[in-house]
Design a protein around this nucleic acid. Sequence first.
DNA 1: CGATAGCTTGAGAGTACTCAAAGTGGGTGG
DNA 2: CCACCCACTTTGAGTACTCTCAAGCTATCG
Lengths: 224, 224
Amino acid sequence: MYVTIPTENNTPPTVPSFPTSLPQTAETLLRTGAYLYFEGDDVEWLYQVTSGTLRLTRLLSDGRRQVIAFGYPGDIVGFPASGLHHTDCEALCDVRLQPFRRSALESGEGDPKLHAALLQAALREISQMQDHFMMLGRKSAIEKLASFLCVLETRVGKDLGNHRSVTLPMSRSDIADFLGLTTETVSRTFTQLRKSKIIAIDNIHTVIIQRPDAMLGLSIGHHG
Amino acid sequence: MYVTIPTENNTPPTVPSFPTSLPQTAETLLRTGAYLYFEGDDVEWLYQVTSGTLRLTRLLSDGRRQVIAFGYPGDIVGFPASGLHHTDCEALCDVRLQPFRRSALESGEGDPKLHAALLQAALREISQMQDHFMMLGRKSAIEKLASFLCVLETRVGKDLGNHRSVTLPMSRSDIADFLGLTTETVSRTFTQLRKSKIIAIDNIHTVIIQRPDAMLGLSIGHHG
DNA sequence: CGATAGCTTGAGAGTACTCAAAGTGGGTGG
DNA sequence: CCACCCACTTTGAGTACTCTCAAGCTATCG
């Protein structure tokens, strides 16, 4: 999951159902805190997240970290480059995964439909990452956090009558490293949103979105 | 071209020679300032840059711009998402292009080798964009500009005895919108590099890199 | 119930931004 | 051929946003 431009987000965010013409490998369970792979590992499998949330990270030698993406249900993770993984991947909570052989992406023999679907997922990934560039390079802290919450609301928000609720399985520092901010700035920005009554913080991992319209406005730069 | 981590940049940056087992479409020439495609256009062709430089941009509704990438020789541009282009693409100077049909990427019928090569290019693109996230989200202005110049030096730098020279076909504001900075900050950072004798500015579009070692150091966070 | 990791808040500093003006260079037309 | 014009670049001054460092708070887990 990347932070795309909310208003232009008119393509289906997920790959709801993958072609399953052939018998597939059984679903895998990854426990909270377990790693699915590390940077530099050989890629043998790609995975579609069925439930739960993954966190993909890269590290600089001096310790600075960038969260590359969160893996939400429907997302495909593990695209290889030169046959290797280029991020670490950890489960933020228990995660169910549907594995696909790397060969299903790269050679496509056996299941052309699956091959095509994985390729389309990779191409969609490129487009979404382009949106994310805009967010990292050009948006302020409040625009970043509002955009992030808007995307989550759309993807995994729950209806609460006239409000909406979003669960955040990741820590504040995960959010910070995803948005290119510090934990302190993320925390302050949450407080700012809370004080302006746009959100309420039920507990650290649950945000009630009280004014989705105002949030969307903030995400595209309408300050106020 | 993205700004990857210079020291970890050990994979070949370009796709030097693409499989050409079948007769190909003839090379295309794009004149300075001409657009190859616009955001929203249907994708009919992908292109490998043979010579010259392209600029890929996205716009926000309020006018903020992000340069997504520069297309240097060897780079493939035009990957579709939902069959559409998601950036504008302009020639910064005269550009020669080798076109490939979109079907060569998506169906692969006719030329499996070309299909595989285009797929690998897309996967490499994803990995390089992940590096670029790190740069946009976690690096300072001087680290960004030094990283940018380091990558260009490696990709297209010319040897000048004990110095190296890099041609910059893009404007300062193109660089700014690529690195997530303002033109003023880019200009000031160039001046800073010049005053510390790491670079010399021959003319606006030509930079002499006098101390590549110091530049590399700055790019990975050794301030000085 | 205490320890600890994560979160929030505060104060101050620094980097990058905004607004403004001056400098530079390429191109066009007289 | 030269002068002017315009776009781009550089420099300056002041501001604002985000970061850093520090301390207090909260929640979870032994």
